[in-house]
Simulated assay, not measured.
Amino acid sequence: MKYIVPSLLILVLAANTALAGPAPWFQWRSKLNGAFACSQTPLGPGWEKSAGPYRDARCEKLIVAK
């Protein structure tokens, strides 16, 4: 009986994680030379967010807000 509650908690957390969607992609612009890169996470202090969010790793398919 003492294992039922922790097991149910783990099951609920696992199910919630399985329903989560992927993180969006953003286009980043280099402050140094203006080059563009597509990433889900910030690339560092030398980069600034340029556009997004996108659904794909090529930063081609914009996510349209409903």
Rank of each mutant, 00 (worst) to 15 (best):
A35M: 05
C59G: 05
I63L: 15
L13Y: 07
M1N: 09
R55P: 06
K31Y: 11
G21S: 14
Y3S: 10
D56L: 10
T17R: 00
M1I: 14
P22H: 01
S50D: 12
G46R: 13
G44M: 09
Y54P: 09
P22Y: 00
G21R: 12
S7R: 12
A18N: 00
F26N: 08
Y3E: 11
T41W: 12
F26W: 10
L13M: 07
S50V: 08
A23F: 04
P45Q: 14
W28E: 10
V12R: 09
A51R: 15
L43C: 00
C38L: 01
V12E: 00
L43A: 10
R55H: 12
A23T: 15
E60Q: 15
W47S: 10
A23E: 14
S7V: 15
L43P: 03
G44N: 00
F26Q: 08
Q40R: 13
P22R: 11
W25Y: 09
I10M: 14
L62Y: 11
L19W: 07
L8V: 08
W47M: 00
I4C: 14
Y3H: 15
K49L: 09
T41I: 12
A18I: 11
T17D: 04
S7I: 12
A35V: 06
A23V: 12
S7K: 13
Q27W: 04
R55I: 01
V64I: 15
E48Q: 09
F36K: 02
L62F: 00
T17W: 00
Q27H: 01
Q40E: 10
G52N: 09
M1R: 14
I63R: 04
G44W: 01
P53K: 05
L19H: 11
G46V: 05
P53H: 01
L11A: 13
K66S: 05
V64R: 14
P6L: 05
T41Y: 04
N33F: 13
P6G: 03
M1A: 14
G34F: 08
M1L: 15
I10H: 06
L9N: 00
N16I: 03
G52F: 08
Q40Y: 10
Y54G: 01
I63D: 05
G34E: 06
L8D: 10
L43W: 07
L32M: 13
S39E: 00
V12Q: 09
G52M: 12
Y54Q: 08
W25T: 01
A51Q: 01
A23H: 06
Q27E: 10
T17E: 03
L13T: 00
A23W: 05
L62Q: 09
M1T: 11
N16T: 13
Q40G: 13
L9P: 06
P24E: 11
F26D: 07
V5G: 04
C38P: 05
L11D: 02
Q27V: 11
P6R: 04
G52E: 07
P45K: 07
P6I: 07
T41M: 05
A18M: 08
S30L: 03
K31M: 11
A20R: 00
C38E: 08
A37V: 09
P42E: 11
C38V: 03
R29D: 02
Y54M: 03
A15G: 07
N16L: 13
S50E: 13
